[in-house]
Structure formats: C-alpha cells, structure tokens
Design a protein around this nucleic acid. Structure first.
Lengths: 213, 213
DNA sequence: GAGTTTTTCTATAGATTTATAGAATTATTC
DNA sequence: GAATAATTCTATAAATCTATAGAAAAACTC
C-alpha cells in the first residue's frame, strides 16, 4: 500500500525550484498518509493526530501541509482522480469492439482501485462529508466519467452489439456500482485475485447470468 | 422516512406489562432517530446530542435507551435485519422459476431499502466502525443471506436455466453489490422510481447488456 | 559560516464530546 | 391520594480535538 508512482500530477504543478520540489514530494506523502488514515477510520473517526503520526511528525506540524482537516479530505478525494478520468477518455476514444472496451474499462477501474485503493476508497465512502462547495471538482470529474461510459454503451447499441432496450444511464451507474463494490472487496480481502475479479465483472455485465436459449 | 411498522420485532420481545410495552415503543423511536442521524452524519460525525435532539429529549436522557453510542450503532445495524433474512428464506424456499425468484430477491432488497432506508444505509456504510465483537450477529445474518443467494443460483444452474460457468459466490456478491449501490441511489434521489429500478436491476443481472446472437 | 528560508516542534486556547450521578418530574398502582 | 416505579432533566467530570502562534531546528544560499 504505497500509492507512489503518480506523484506526477502534484509534482508537475510544482516549480522546478528544489525547494518546491521537496515540498511537493512531502505533500504527496501527506496526502497518502491522510488517505490511509481516512480509509481506515473514516473522516470523522480520524484525527489530525492520527495523520501526523502516520507521517512521523507532530500534530501541529500537519497544518504546514493542509489548511484544515476538511481540506485534507478534499485533497485525498481529488488525488489522481483527473488522471483516472483521462485514462478513461483514452480507452473510450479507441476504435475497439464493445466487449474489449468494457473489459478495458473494468480493468482500469479495478486496477486503479488496487493501486490507489486508499484514496479511491475515501473518495467513494467519505466524499459526501465534504460540503458541496468542496465537491464541485469531484462532481464534474464524476459526471465526465459516467458520460463517457454512457456514450460507450450508446455506441455499442448503434453498432448492434448491445441490446437496444437498455437504459444507458441506468447501466452506467450499475457498472460503476459493481466495480466500486468489488473494489471495496479487493481492498478488504487480500486473497482475491484482481484479474480474476476483472474477468468475472465484465463477464457478468456483458452476458448476465442466464443461459442463452 | 418513518420506518415504523416493524416495531413488531422489538415489541415482541417486550413483556405484555404496560410498562415494558411503552418502553419498547420509545426504544424503537430511539433506534430510528439514531438511524436517521447516523445515516445523515455517519457514526463518528454524529453526536449523542444530535440523536437526543432528533428524539426531542436531552442529551443525558439518551442513555436511558442506549448503554453507549457504540451500542446504539449496533442496534441500528441489527434493526429489522433478521426479519429481512427471514423474508429471503421464504422467497428462496418457494417453488418458482429462477427469473421470478431473482426478481423477488431484488424486489425484497430494494423495497426494504426504500422502507428501512436509514437503518440499511447505516448497516452498509457504518457497520465496520463497530469492533468485531459487536458484529458477530450481523456477520452471521449476512452470511446466511449470501448463502441463500448462492444456493438459489446453484439451483438455477441445476435446472439448466443459469449458465453453468458462473461462479455463484462471485455472482452473489455482485448482486448484493448492485442492489446496495442502487439502494443508496434511491436513498439520495427521490425522483427515482423503486419499481423501475427493480426491473432494471434484475434485467441486468439476468440478461446482461449484449444482444443475443 | 553568516544570513535567509523552510520545516518542524511545543504549548495552548477554546470548543466539543461521552458518560455518569443525583435530583426532579411524570406515570402507575393500590 | 399516598406510595412506588419509570422517565427525563441538570450539571459536570474527564477526555479529546482542531487550529494557531511563536520558538526552535534544519536546510539552503552565497
């Protein structure tokens, strides 16, 4: 559970000045520490003391990195989210058969979960404790993601591959629901295999449970 | 959002002595008030003051009904759960075609959500904040429920109606995941139609998204 | 290495929160 | 209606939590 790698997003915003670079690195560590603690104890259950301890600093020092506890939650929820939506855009833009796209979408979702699990878990479970003002960016990104999914389904229908009697809006929400539900399971249970889970999820979404007649 | 009706469960345990009956009634009101508050603010975000205010009593008086805040969470999570599992048992015991059973299961789940929404929401989202000792009953009931679902799927396979290459364990979890995800949506969005949602959920589970060839 | 900037620490104000004890009130019983 | 039991209230102890201010330490610059 390191969640490193995509320091990129935050690092990119930092100037090349060594000072800022070092700050940015530690800021990422702070976000990831907060993500771990919030994932474990929930926003209200976690204390700034917990987060500071997770970073190995004193409680008061935490405020060098976060303006407030609430700001920390917001940053955790937004952490790497736009990269994730970006990846979704790429998947949807590709010229591939519907089944392959769906597999790629589920893969992206669950892979992201198994890599950025804490931040994603916190986003899914705790973001509603943020006041609406702090959720505008999240809402936008979430809507973009869902629309891409709906669009992909609509394309599948247009190609005659997907049933034309489904409600794309409903199915999009359902897919997100299944993926998040399995994401949480993967988080909880180490013995689960990510790729096995991916297979089964997309299989269920595509084919359902009934035998073909 | 009254959540009355099934006072039965708790009332049944109370002796016929008028005293106990009145206490039991108010205790149910306490559980439902706690459910509303926990659903809204989360376990740690809610205060005993909030729950007391919701009941129209003073903070200290709340301890006449709950031994502790944690005990209140446990009681909310367990509230009406065993009735719910009981209903599931009846559905599964019936001699009906697989499709009808699945529709009944989804209906039971989502109908329960729209009636006992607060307690169910709290159960789904907050129960893990309880220490393991307080979750034994919940765990048992949950396992029973999932097993019934798995068994129903297995019967469907035996009858040749359900694909024999699915993993019943995985599919059972997925069904629960979809239902809970839509339960939460129904909770949030009043404009959604419960029966429409039920239709769509079971349709997706049964037939998936692809056209038959 | 003196001076400057960044990072961390300590200490604390001020507000909340859970849970308890004992008094006060209300309801029930005979 | 006096005696008893149930319910609610008030007041408070004890613990905890966020956020801030200013000092101390560490890192960096020239």
């Amino acid at each position: 559970m390191t969640e490193s790698s995509s320091a990129d997003a935050v690092l990119a915003t930092a100037n090349v000045v060594p000072h800022r670079k070092k700050y940015a690195r530690k800021k990422i560590a702070a976000i990831e520490a907060a993500a771990r603690v919030f994932a474990d104890k929930g926003f209200h259950g976690a204390t700034t003391q917990d987060i500071a301890a997770e970073m190995g600093i004193q409680q008061g020092s935490l405020y060098y990195y976060f303006k407030s506890k609430e700001a920390a939650l917001q940053e955790v929820c937004e952490y790497d989210f736009s990269n994730y939506v970006q990846r979704m855009k790429k998947i949807c833009a590709k010229d591939q058969p519907f089944e392959a796209k769906m597999l790629a979408i589920v893969t992206s979702h669950l892979t992201n979960y198994s890599q950025k699990s804490n931040a994603m878990k916190v986003h899914n479970e705790q973001r509603l404790y943020l006041p609406a003002e702090r959720r505008v960016v999240l809402k936008e990104l979430g809507t973009t993601y869902r629309r891409l999914l709906e669009q992909t389904l609509a394309e599948g229908i247009a190609q005659g591959l997907v049933r034309n009697d489904i409600d794309t809006h409903f199915v999009a929400y359902s897919i997100i629901g299944i993926c998040n539900s399995w994401g949480a399971n993967l988080f909880r249970d180490d013995s689960l295999d990510v790729f096995e889970t991916i297979e089964q999820c997309s299989d269920l979404i595509l084919y359902g449970t009934l035998n073909k007649r």
